[in-house]
């Protein structure tokens, strides 16, 4: 199972699309590693400095409809090779969300007001998140602050995360 705890990258924008996550011109790459330097290369977001801000981060917290656009699984892969295995958002585009769990990664939705609150309290601070998959709790920490937020994922998604993805699961079952 992958690691779902670590430093948080805040992206304060809705509708971040797959072309922004990884531009189409890199889809000719057949290895995941080659995608690493290009994650979020075309993202236009005030104050976001691609290389520096991604470095060392393990989790993205963002707004609504993250991952809309193309079906490219290169989007989760570009995250994965940068050490980011989890995105927390108000909502996701369907294909992106499914791709994340199919790869054994997590795409977790929290209510808009919780996301708002997290942005208000933690955005701009060096924030660390701990994921407790047994209790379904996130623990956010920054500057001595600590807050908890409950989450839920379906049993099916949980079994994909545990099995390490959909291929092994499906091949043994169907």
């Amino acid at each position: 199972m992958k690691n779902f705890s670590g430093k948080v990258l805040f992206l304060d924008k809705s509708d971040i699309n797959t072309d922004e996550i990884i531009p189409a011109k890199y889809l000719t790459e057949i290895s995941k590693k080659a995608l690493k330097p290009h994650l979020l290369e075309d993202l236009q977001l005030n104050g976001f400095a691609q290389g520096k801000d991604i470095q060392g981060k393990s989790v993205i917290i963002t707004r609504a409809n993250f991952g809309c656009g193309s079906s490219r699984e290169h989007a989760p892969w570009a995250l994965e090779v940068n050490g980011i295995n989890m995105v927390i958002a108000e909502s996701f585009a369907r294909i992106f969300r499914q791709n994340m769990f199919n790869c054994g990664m997590m795409a977790v939705e929290l209510p808009g007001r919780t996301i708002n609150h997290i942005f208000q309290v933690f955005s701009g601070k060096e924030t660390f998140i701990e994921t407790d998959l047994e209790k379904n709790i996130f623990i956010l920490k920054a500057d001595g602050l600590e807050e908890k937020a409950g989450f839920s994922i379906s049993d099916f998604d949980r079994s994909l995360v545990a099995a390490g993805g959909w291929v092994e699961y499906a091949d043994s079952k169907y």
């Binding site: 193309s70 699984e73 294909i95 499914q98 791709n99 199919n102 959909w166 291929v167 091949d171």
Partner: peptide
């Protein structure tokens, strides 16, 4: 429906 490479694989 459009799917990612893992769904395609399965």
């Amino acid at each position: 429906a459009g799917v990612g490479s893992t769904d395609l694989e399965v």
